[in-house]
């Protein structure tokens, strides 16, 4: 009976830990709930949870309170509230390894042809809109930076990595990428940082800062 009580209490704390209260708000702040396709305006006193994505316009901000801990998301940012939590180094390493799992395995195939052949000129009525991609990607990176500044370094790295993949134009934001790669160095994840800087160098082959960091990391890894 005692065990049951403790379990229920723990569950309750865990659920409450997911709840955020909007303490202050300025400008235009919207929320995208769970898998919704519609942004909603956020007002002071609203309750948000870990499934929500907060997006702020320029010159806007929102202050959240989670179990007494306050967090301010500045303007021109986007943040999934599920990342507003401490992540262990082990979980971070596992998540970084997940990048490998994203790859579709190469196989021999079963002889079924993929229906990809299009005869005649394929016309794409709508070319990829890099501006939309760029805007949300930058907001996400800004949100990730604020995570790092508030001590959620591991979460920040994960958000940045996911942003590079879902918003590919952000891969060219060299300064931001260096910022998040430096976090890996701070966390003494030298091998992971080494790989990340090598990835960044593909986008900026002549960047001396990156080359110097790679050389330093080589020494760290060898030692």
């Amino acid at each position: 009976m005692k065990k049951l009580f403790i379990a229920i209490l723990f569950l309750g704390l865990n659920l409450s830990a997911q709840d955020f209260t909007v303490e202050k708000i300025s400008g235009n702040v919207q929320v995208l709930k769970s898998t919704s396709e519609k942004y909603e305006n956020v007002n002071q006193g609203d309750k948000l949870n870990g499934n929500d994505l907060i997006v702020t316009d320029e010159k806007s901000f929102i202050q959240l309170n989670k179990a007494g801990n306050k967090f301010i998301l500045q303007g021109n940012s986007a943040l999934g509230l599920n990342y507003l939590k401490q992540i262990s180094i082990n979980d971070l390493l596992l998540a970084l390894a997940r990048e490998e799992i994203r790859r579709v395995p190469k196989n021999e195939g079963n002889g079924n042809s993929r229906n990809t052949a299009v005869y005649g000129e394929e016309i794409r009525k709508d070319s990829p809109n890099s501006k939309i991609d760029d805007k949300m990607g930058i907001k996400k990176l800004n949100g990730a930076k604020q995570l790092a500044e508030n001590g959620y370094k591991e979460s920040a790295v994960l958000v940045a990595k996911e942003t590079y993949r879902k918003y590919p134009s952000t891969k060219n934001k060299i300064d931001e990428r260096i910022y998040f790669a430096d976090i890996l160095v701070d966390l003494t994840l030298y091998s992971e940082a080494f790989e990340e800087f090598n990835e960044i160098r593909k986008a900026a082959p002549n960047n001396e800062v990156i080359s110097n960091k790679i050389e330093k990391l080589k020494i760290e890894i060898e030692n």
Partner: peptide, 22 residues
Amino acid sequence: LAPMEAHLITINDKKYFVREDK
């Protein structure tokens, strides 16, 4: 779709997963 085209089907990036093809 390429990730840059994902906005054509959703504004919510939780609704898709990016995988690298062969």
